[in-house]
């Protein structure tokens, strides 16, 4: 698992790549943690771009739930975008659409969160 980031205005894109399983879920949690404090009302929004994530088990879903529990009370907005087929099935089975919005594309996710970020993303 590797995590890369990029920013479009007030939206931070987090891009996990590879696989998240019980062996490396803590590594994923540690990699995400520094970005949670600024995810709050009036602060950053987060999008997990899942286009390069091949596999996620319940250990990775647990980290996403922790993200929700962490930023929710502060009014932070988080969305998931562009999951690969099996990852999308896993999110659907576990009803994550009731935890985070799930968008078919990163562009749609950004547009739903921030017009400024959408404009910035369109220029990339």
């Amino acid at each position: 698992m590797a995590l890369s980031t990029s920013r479009c205005a007030d939206v931070l894109l987090l891009r996990p790549k590879g696989r998240i399983d019980h062996n490396n879920a803590e590594e994923f949690a540690d990699a995400v943690k520094p970005y949670l404090a600024d995810c709050k009302a009036g602060g950053d929004s987060l999008i997990f771009d899942l286009s390069e994530l091949e596999y996620i088990s319940s250990a990775g879903l647990r980290v996403l739930m922790l993200v929700s529990k962490n930023v929710g009370p502060n009014g932070g907005k988080v969305a998931l975008a562009q999951p690969q087929r099996v990852v999308g099935e896993i999110l659907q089975i576990s009803r994550f659409k009731y935890v985070f919005p799930i968008h078919d594309t990163v562009a749609a996710g950004i547009a739903a969160l921030s017009p400024d970020a959408a404009a910035a993303y369109a220029r990339t």
């Binding site: 879903l61 089975i93 935890v99």
Partner: peptide, 18 residues
Amino acid sequence: PHLRPPHERPIGGLGVVL
């Protein structure tokens, strides 16, 4: 766990569901 309301969901327990 996935059938509970979002604010009541525990963070884990999805393995057997999957």
